[in-house]
Design a protein around this nucleic acid. Structure first.
Lengths: 198, 198, 198, 198
DNA sequence: TATGAATGAGTTTTCATTCAT
DNA sequence: CATGAATGAAAACTCATTCAT
């Protein structure tokens, strides 16, 4: 149910009332029970579909890339897909992403598995880039991945279509990610030896 | 009320029940009404305190830096404060950050103002870095800022203290941010030996 | 809701609990919310209906009188209608009359308007009687009207069907009112040759 | 407690909250328990005092009349006392009178006894007048008494000091009562045989 | 004598859910 | 398939009452 995803992405798990979902679907609340056994089922399904769609979408996009695409370019493609899917297309993705933390574990099983699968795709992309020397050694790949996905996920909270086009956002995000990961430019000599806090 | 922030950061706005808050505070639910006029007042206050504390904390940390700290190092300090405050210290910050999107506007007025003020601090830090040539020209500063804060905010969703220490996370995030922003260290000499806050 | 009027007329505004109303209606309390948005709406409606019905009732009774009915006889008819409606027929009227003073202004707007309209009918009856010389000059018509309505309204507090029939009460009240208003039947000839109602 | 009477006369029995009473008394609610064992005790006492004061007051006023005062004049004096006491002087009287019907029987015992005693005074006044031929034969003395007291009691609901002075009201009420009771003037011939509506 | 703090009982209200139609 | 009507469970909230101070 599209309406579910929409409400879920706006009001959060506990705030998702069947009445609101039904209103969005131009239905009366009891009608939902014709399609779903319970509120929980409905939400569980929407959460699952969110990640599931996103994963399919990403997988297809990656499969469509020329085989000689560099690992970094694959990552940037993934970033674009993730962003566009979450912002343009899909209440489901937003619902799924935003509510991850608020949902009782019981309802998360399927979504969690799907999410792990989605993360695994990213892990492979990053591992490939690392193997190719396209990722700086001072970064833990898992942490870097989480930071990237965080940066992308959060865009749903602040992005305002009246200020920036998605294209602009995508371009910026890609530049941001590329440099955050990449080692110093090619003829590299030395690199900064920063120090960070302790 | 600390308990409110805790529940709020776990269950979300609509999922925050007075009974749970009260249980955390080792009280009966009606006792809350001795201190707050309504559930909404309570939540509003917690959300406000979240950003308010965070801003104070950041401001103090920045004020404590040596005056010759480079703009980039100031940003990295800010990142550290933001991370540590959200992960280590404060249910308030988490509550405030995670629930921003789910709360009725009516309750957000004060928190919004505070958030804007907080963002302004970051804007100034980034503008200073840009003015100093420490930020690549292909990045829109506002977008970059949002991406950074997204990456940091999201850490509350995935960070697992049993896998990584906060220190590790901070170091990685700082490296991540530094390079995501910094121009290629062309014929680089040396770069700052930053120090970030403690 | 008849049940509301009944409880309201017995327990007063603040004492009217939804549970009691529901019990009277052989329902569960939440079912009330299917028909009314809130307790206040429910009460507001019952109070309004009280006066509204009474006014309709009175208006119809007056319209049904022969056109040559004397002004005084019209007044006595109105008294009878008022009494019978409040005692025999209507929890609504009792609810409306008894609780006038206890209800927050916010809920009284509509009822007040209706009440004013009801009073206006009486005013006209009395003015007509006065114009016809059937009311003593030492009485302020407004005050007299209020005293009459008071005498009638209050009967709900003390009238006990096991002691007096409504008919007896009506006859007594009419005699009471007639003489309270009428000028001394100076060189009296004949007056109306009435009959008390059945 | 004066405050109790005041609140009680405004909000009714169920609407009388200890907090409101306390606020009126410029106290905190728990302080009431220093003087009264419970809310019910407090209310019971206020209701009792209402009628008790009124009765004392009336008794003293009657005792002060010259012994040759006519029965009718005694009644009119009683009416004045009743009115003035309820309007000018006493929240207690108003509380007692207005809430008679809403209070659980358990709390009414004492007030009821007192009320009966008060009514007995009136009964005697009216009986005396009747014995003296000053009351028309077509009136049931008990009903007439109730109608009179109703007219007087109700004045608390509508009397507006900005429209009429108490003096005016008293004068009107006395005229109203006198004629409602009195037989047609001396050289009376025939009297009305009223007619009322059907 | 009085109050700040808290609570238990009970009330209004919300909402998922059921069910006859 | 869908809805109007209703309900049980649970939530927010109110308020008399207690108690330590």
């Amino acid at each position: 149910m599209d309406a579910t995803a929409h409400v879920l992405s706006t009001k959060g798990f506990a705030g998702t009332r069947l009445t609101d979902v039904a209103k969005h679907a131009e239905l009366q609340a009891p009608a939902i029970y014709y399609y779903f056994a319970s509120r929980e089922d409905l939400i569980e399904e929407a959460m699952f579909r969110g990640i599931n769609d996103l994963r399919d979408h990403l997988q297809r996009a990656l499969d469509a890339l020329p085989t000689d695409t560099t690992p970094m370019d694959r990552i940037l493609t993934a970033a674009e897909v993730h962003l566009r899917h979450g912002l343009d297309l899909s209440d489901y993705a937003r619902a799924s992403i935003r509510n991850s933390g608020q949902i009782p574990d019981r309802l998360r099983a399927r979504q969690k598995k799907e999410l792990t699968a989605y993360h695994r795709i990213w892990q492979r992309l990053i591992a490939a880039a690392a193997a190719d020397g396209q990722i700086r050694g001072d970064l833990d790949p898992k942490i870097a991945q989480s930071l990237i996905l965080g940066a992308l996920n959060w865009s749903a909270e602040w992005w305002d279509p009246r200020r920036n086009s998605v294209d602009t956002l995508v371009t910026n995000a890609q530049a941001f990610i590329r440099h955050s990961l990449a080692p110093a430019a090619k003829p590299a000599r030395r690199r900064a030896k920063g120090r960070a806090a302790g």
